[in-house]
Design a protein around this nucleic acid. Structure first.
Lengths: 114, 114
DNA sequence: AAAATAATTAGGTATTGACCTAACTATTGG
DNA sequence: CCAATAGTTAGGTCAATACCTAATTATTTT
């Protein structure tokens, strides 16, 4: 009943880190090179590259290298998948609340009727 | 410029695990006790409790104990926060694409004009 | 060709995460 | 009261994560 694809794991995991979310925020504004992306962070380059790798594995970032420069771009699909999952849960939740509302309303009507 | 609240960390982290997402999916349909929630998983109770704890720390689940039974309920706020963050990134992304579209269009017009 | 730049690889440490078993503490039903 | 039930605590293992430094490769710039 519940779609539980491993891709969601990787996407959520990638987004669970503030550095990686900041990278996504940067790339949402447009492509950037590794060095540009890394600049704001007080972190050694290899550490940053590891974060990038997690983002790539999660499918959130695609990269390509030209000369000695690697350029990164955001891939929106995993964000959409995550959003879809969230929406599904919120739909269930609100649906249930609506049912509760209806129940309470009918109880109230019964009350008034006597 | 980028809101980077720690709460998002905890929420994303909580959702990065399939067991925990399944718990959220279950609770979206309505409250349940710890044992009920744990039943589907092939996992020792203490392990499951640890997952629950992560969900509580992420603010996704609230629990209360009556007698020997602990009942769990979903808290939708963190889901909303996560959804909001996602929407913000997707908005930036599509906005940028739109700008690109306009740019390409104007280039095309220039072309036609000569 | 030498020096600077961009990224990568190798390898190490310390913390956290995901599981387990075993033993324990309520609470509740018979 | 006693046994079953629901959950908890303590403590241990093993793998993964998040960082680091140092050394290396490949490409540009001067």
């Amino acid at each position: 009943m519940s779609l539980n694809p491993a891709p969601l794991d990787d996407a959520f995991r990638a987004l669970a880190d503030p550095t990686r979310r900041a990278v996504v925020e940067a790339l949402a504004r447009g492509p950037a090179t590794v060095s540009e992306l890394a600049r704001p962070f007080d972190m050694a380059m290899p550490s940053f590259l590891q974060h990038l790798k997690v983002l790539e594995e999660g499918g959130l970032v695609a990269t390509s290298k030209k000369g000695r420069v690697r350029t990164c771009a955001l891939r929106p699909e995993p964000l959409a998948a995550v959003g879809g999952w969230l929406d599904a849960q919120r739909a269930l939740w609100t649906q249930r609340l609506d049912q509760l509302d209806r129940l309470l309303l009918s109880l109230k009507n019964d009350e008034e009727r006597r």
